[in-house]
């Protein structure tokens, strides 16, 4: 399979998995935003909704995401290692004309994202980080898991908020390069649309950053209680 072996093929797989995760991130954000009350019952009702989906759907979804992350991470590491060997000796003077901080550090921002995702899963999905506020074991008055309580409790802690906000900066960096990169890698780009795609990609990344960072920050600032 040339897709799995060749340089372009593996890049395409990375791009597709990466973009799928972006899509997930967008949906996830929309769901999260129910915390601001647009859904009757708020985020707790939303959580309940998700939990009441048929088990195979949930498992399938989670497995799918896991595969995507693994493929993305696997090829990301593989390609990066290969690329480090592409120029065995660096130039005495480093001059970059187009590359950006974000594009140069994809592997590091990606790595931080892995770490963050693990923490985030343990924190809010498996809820083992602070069991005393775990939503699943503390239902709200309607019987939904008290996600709001859990989240508010967590983000009143400055330290936790900083971790989340920091991770979102990292996500922004990763995607400010990654989204436009996806279009280029799949060949959905040319000189006319490329500047637009780059801008739009950065905007989406910024949107995700603002959206995600809004929750912990509004809680920390006691706007959301």
């Amino acid at each position: 399979m040339q897709l799995l072996k060749s340089s372009i093929g593996r890049k395409i797989l990375m791009a597709i998995t990466g973009q799928a995760m972006v899509l997930f991130a967008v949906i996830h954000l929309l769901g999260n935003s129910s915390i601001f009350g647009w859904l009757p019952g708020g985020i707790n009702a939303y959580a309940h909704h998700l939990h009441s989906l048929p088990a195979p759907v949930i498992i399938g979804f989670r497995l799918g995401l896991l595969v995507f992350v693994c493929v993305h991470v696997w090829f990301g590491i593989q390609l990066t290692i290969e690329n480090r060997g592409g120029r065995p000796q660096q130039y005495a003077v480093k001059t970059l004309q187009k590359a950006t901080f974000a594009s140069e550090n994809m592997i590091w921002t990606g790595g931080l994202l892995v770490a963050f995702i693990l923490y985030h899963l343990l924190h809010f999905t498996f809820q083992v980080v602070s069991p005393e506020t775990a939503a699943l074991s503390h239902p709200d008055s309607l019987g939904n898991p008290n996600v709001l309580g859990m989240v508010v409790a967590a983000f009143q802690n400055m330290f936790v908020t900083l971790i989340y906000a920091g991770a979102m900066v990292v996500l922004f960096l990763h995607l400010s390069h990654g989204i436009q990169s996806f279009f280029q890698t799949l060949g959905w780009s040319n000189d006319r649309v490329q500047p637009f795609i780059t801008k739009a990609g950065t905007l989406v990344a910024l949107g995700l950053f603002l959206g995600y960072a809004a929750v912990p920050l509004t809680i920390l600032l006691r706007i959301l209680k």
């Binding site: 690329n83 970059l96 950006t100 280029q184 060949g187």
Partner: peptide
Amino acid sequence: GNCTNHYECMAACPKGINVKFIARMNREFL
């Protein structure tokens, strides 16, 4: 090596070859 879409190539190219041609190659590859 593999492409990571830094576009340094285009900046270095003395003939102004545009990276849209990399996109086209990717498309052809798919």
